[in-house]
Design a protein around this nucleic acid. Structure first.
Lengths: 242, 242
DNA sequence: CGAACGTTTGACGGGAATCAAGATAGGTGG
DNA sequence: CCACCTATCTTGATTCCCGTCAAACGTTCG
């Protein structure tokens, strides 16, 4: 491995300086004062990867945490016979790497082309000592994830296929509207298989449910990864959201 | 309300001093040095309640956190039409009350007679400032809960009824063995209905599955709340645990 | 053009939910 | 102490939805 200047290394990997980072404000890094961003910069390592690439696997020692710069990640758990449950999808700005007892309890893979910021947990701990607000933010992230996990348990245990798919689309729509409040379109970077493993269904049931929503006029499907939602009220009813 | 001395108040409510607390070591309070237990003592408020009593409801402002002294709690979420998903059971020593955005995202009820220690979140925050180890411990608890939630998602989305019930019994057996490593008996304080809502099944399917496990010799059922497990190997296979 | 992959659609069957009826246990009052 | 009532659990019968198996369709890429 050649060792150039950090700056050159960053340029080589297509890295963006933290100050210019598009997702900084919505990520953990947004908690750090701009003046101290250089501290982050010296800790971060930029990663780029292709669809399907594993980031880490269940059981791995949890040495790093990550922030998603661009692209989509799936988190998953496996049963011995190969059945898979996707426990979550991550999008730009999302944090990755919380682990109990320093062992990842889930695997993580790139769904799309992906850009990540990698931090060593030890080094980050040093930063937390000096900037307690970052630790507080991470704790808040953990609590948000826990609430999301509980929502997903409700979905998996007690919702029908229609309700599951509607809930999934509605969540994606709400995410899209954080950036564009007028948006009625969502892009689904993941396959039907991924959606099925996320919702506790089979790929066929997912496909049929999309078709049914389309035929009922609740959604448009320009193609299998793009959805237009003309009437989010109707979708909300179908999702059984309170 | 008459205001006696704190000591008298504690005696009236059957409270135990923190120093004598049986579950202190395995709970968040175990992180505080014995010498400083008086700090806790001045913050804590003891609660006792009967089966079925609500502790708080989804949507309530999260002003308090709790530790379970004795008894069992169910955490749950509801759908508008009344369907219920139990997201977890809590036992002595367990912590209760993590909340995103200071709103409980789930309800909590007593399953059995219950004794709780209640802490105001504001006051506890003050304690955390002086004893950072407690905050770290709470973060560790949050990460454990998140890992448990992911396990439960795998169970709800991808396991069969036999696997679900076996996994549930196996977990309870492992819990029992933390206190008595030789134990082959578990006590289930909750109803079949609670188990069904925890595992994403109907009460009838839970009952049939218990019966089937009994007929197959995997468990004994002295009565519906007591289970003996002669062969935990077999149960482990059925649970599809790795 | 054809191979490979992902998605959709169709036919079918199994298994859990639903509907319904008993069995068991716990509690109350006569 | 027992009859009665209620709640919980178990068991049985039936239904129907989703999973399974299979094939067709469409898109991408070599």
């Amino acid at each position: 491995m050649s060792r150039g200047s950090p700056c050159a290394a960053a340029r080589r990997s297509g890295a963006v300086a933290c100050l210019q980072c598009e997702v900084r404000e919505i990520s953990l890094c947004g908690e750090l004062p701009e003046n101290d961003l250089s501290e982050l910069q010296s800790l971060v390592r930029h990663k780029e990867m292709q669809p399907g690439t594993p980031i880490f696997e269940e059981g791995d020692e949890a040495r790093y945490v990550y922030n998603v710069s661009s692209g989509t990640i799936r988190l998953y758990k496996l049963l011995p016979n190969g059945r898979r449950q996707i426990t979550g999808f991550l999008y730009p700005g999302d944090f990755l790497g919380l682990a109990a007892r320093d062992i990842y309890s889930y695997g993580a893979e790139a769904v799309t082309e992906l850009r990540l910021c990698q931090f060593g947990v030890r080094e980050l701990e040093g930063l937390f000592e000096r900037f307690p607000a970052m630790r507080a933010r991470l704790f808040a992230i953990a609590k948000d994830e826990l609430a999301a996990a509980q929502d997903q348990m409700l979905l998996l245990g007690r919702k029908t296929p229609i309700e599951k798919v509607s809930s999934f689309l509605l969540r994606r729509l709400k995410d899209a509207r954080r950036f564009d409040p007028e948006s009625d379109r969502i892009f689904l970077p993941m396959s039907r298989n991924d959606i099925a493993d996320y919702l506790g269904l089979t790929i066929e049931t997912v496909s049929r449910t999309f078709t049914r929503l389309k035929n009922d006029g609740v959604i448009n499907l320009p193609d299998s990864h793009n959805v237009r939602i003309p009437d989010d009220e109707k979708l909300s009813e179908l999702a059984e959201e309170s």
